[in-house]
Design a protein around this nucleic acid. Sequence first.
DNA 1: GTCCACG
DNA 2: CGTGGACAACGCGGC
DNA 3: GCCGCG
Length: 291
Amino acid sequence: MKQKINGRTIEISNPHKVFYPNANITKGEILNYYNRIAEYMLPHIRNRLVVMQRFPEGIGKEGFYHKQVPDYFPEWLQRKTVTLRKGEKQDIAVVNKKADIIYMAEKGVITFHIWLSQKDNIEKPDKLIFDLDPPKKGEFSEVKFAAYKLRDLFQDMGLIPYVMTTGSKGVHVVTPIKPEYDFDIIRQYVRDILTELVKKYPDRFTLEPRKDERQGRVFLDYLRHAFGQTSVAPYSLRPIEGAPIATLLEWEELPYIENSQKYHMKNIFKRLSQKKDPWKEFKLHRKSLDI
DNA sequence: GTCCACG
DNA sequence: CGTGGACAACGCGGC
DNA sequence: GCCGCG
Ligand SMILES: [Mn+2]
Ligand SMILES: [Mn+2]
């Protein structure tokens, strides 16, 4: 079977292979999903380097993260050569068009993880991302409490924070910024800010990286702010039964969200047909940080 | 999903 | 010619 | 340097 997109012909293999065993979702359905969702994804993923999380045998078998684009990927898929901390070079995939998403999905990519910077300015992130997860199963309300506190914090700084489910356990609070500072500067800056917030709520928040030291507190994960680190792309599927999706929200919806997997392959298009883009103004809301 | 050494 | 097995990430914090 | 973590 073949599909033609953006003038590229993509050969689709094994469309009937089951990728989500429990729900019986096939590779063909995943490709159909990415075909339909691409227009919503592209504004957020375009011009960014991506790490592919691949499950060529479905989520019932082991998957892997894939950064170095293999030579057998087509020449039309853009690579960006980056130098790792250890000095080695790596050719990372860049998403520019719908065909890029579909090609990667054809190669078993279920989840797209994207850089916080764009391809022409890879050293400088254009958004802040804080990853908030429940300290224990079923404590999503703690995640929401943390999200609101971060929202207030950034709004008070004159910034415009947004919120999304990750489709896994928690949420991301994402704030657009002008790409003016390197990752290391940003990370130190946000860490200092969060340290103050933790002082205010020492029994609910922590910056402790070791799980067994968190003691029921929400880890305010700021560690995505580093060169080469990624976060899940908007509208990416997750490799979890039920095919949950990282979904952009309005702050006004958050009170009614009870878990991170509320939106999934079976209900997302109903939502999209009823709701205007909750992040429509995201790029317009990039502000300078006062560092 | 693709590659390739090996039978 | 067919196929089993190899392969496909990395940066940060803290000890 | 290595482990836990995402
Ligand atoms: Mn998370
Ligand atoms: Mn295979």
